[in-house]
């Protein structure tokens, strides 16, 4: 009893560490107890309050396994995972957590309002509060017109949106998102990323996993790179992505002659691999620009070249 009590008792709750794992590992076994797959090798992680933490890696790297261990959905083979200082298997920690699973596993026979009402009940919210939060979240994820339709009629993107809404029904302190942009179109992806950044602005801690590098790069403060169940990199995104030994110069309104002059100056100072030209925008920015322009001027071809280039600069 002593051990069990100690495990579930609050620990370091007052500190900035929201999630910590110590030597956390997971080996999947078959019916006879034989080792089938090592999904996660001993992992030590700390996630601090108010940051957006990304778990990055290819498929099968152990990202989702890590999240499931943090949520108590599976049991560790060794080590421990603490969330808000409590054992991951302690149900009470879930009061402060919102979770968006990889594919929004929800009850398809419920409509959006019923879904949020159900999850609100699980948090013990009173009826008025449930109604208000459900209305706000449905509006936030843009499902007001479809709130009475059963989820089985929803598209993948809509299901994702209601999944996000259910994850936020309890106004959680820690939001865990498993592949949050999976199945979303570029607009939905951008909105999701904006939402994640907004959550951080509201003081929430976000843990997300993704194999979409651009998504992680755009929103995460710190990342952990996993590969074959092993931690390969851990640190702040800007530190990890900084390329030392290369200097980047960006300028607008530079004539070709001036560019040649700049190049000559750089060569004079011994610079190598000099590349002077127009930068490229991202496909996501291009797509969003086209969509916005089309919505602003229906029926006309999008004016993108200048605008996109300007945005890129």
């Amino acid at each position: 009893m002593t051990q069990a009590t100690n495990r579930s008792a609050p620990r370091r709750d007052a500190s900035d560490v929201v999630v910590e794992t110590r030597n956390l590992s997971k080996v999947y076994r078959d019916f006879w107890g034989r080792s089938k797959k090592t999904a996660l090798k001993p992992l030590d992680l700390d996630v601090r309050r108010g940051e957006i933490f990304g778990l990055l890696g290819p498929n099968g790297a152990g990202k989702t396994t890590t999240l499931k261990l943090l949520l108590g959905l599976i049991f560790p083979t060794s080590g421990e995972a603490l969330v808000f200082g409590r054992a991951a298997t302690d149900v009470s920690k879930n009061e402060r957590i919102g979770y968006l699973p990889e594919e929004s596993y929800l009850y398809k026979f419920l409509d959006a309002e019923e879904t949020l009402d159900f999850y609100g009940r699980l948090f013990g919210l009173d009826p008025e509060e449930r109604r208000q939060r459900a209305a706000t979240l449905i509006e936030m994820v843009g499902l007001t017109r479809d709130r009475k339709r059963q989820l089985r009629e929803y598209s993948k993107g809509m299901t994702r949106r209601i999944g996000v809404a259910q994850a936020l029904i309890n106004d959680p302190e820690l939001v865990i998102l498993d592949e949050p942009t999976s199945g979303l179109d570029p607009i939905g992806t951008r909105e999701m990323k904006d939402l994640i950044i907004d959550l951080k602005a509201r003081g929430k801690t976000v843990i997300m996993c993704s194999h979409l590098l651009a998504d992680v790069e755009d929103v995460c403060d710190r990342i952990a790179v996993l590969h074959q169940g092993e931690l390969k990199e851990l640190g702040r995104v800007e530190d990890l992505l900084r390329v030392t030994g290369v200097t980047q110069i960006r300028a607008t309104g530079l004539s070709p002659a001036a560019a040649a002059e700049v190049k000559a100056v750089l060569q004079r100072h011994g610079a190598g691999d000099i590349d002077i030209g127009n930068p490229r925008t991202t496909l996501e920015d291009l797509f969003l620009e086209v969509v916005r322009d089309t919505e602003a001027r229906p029926g006309r071809r999008a004016r993108r070249t200048e605008t996109a280039a300007q945005r890129a600069e």
């Binding site: 949520l71 108590g72 959905l73 149900v91 009470s92 879930n94 009061e95 957590i97 979770y99 699973p101 594919e103 596993y105 929800l106 009850y107 398809k108 999850y119 699980l122 948090f123 013990g124 259910q166 309890n170």
Partner: peptide, 14 residues
């Protein structure tokens, strides 16, 4: 099987 149970067990449900 549909994993809907995961959205329930990750709430404060015993």
């Amino acid at each position: 099987k549909s994993r809907a149970i995961q959205t329930v067990t990750t709430k404060p449900v015993h």
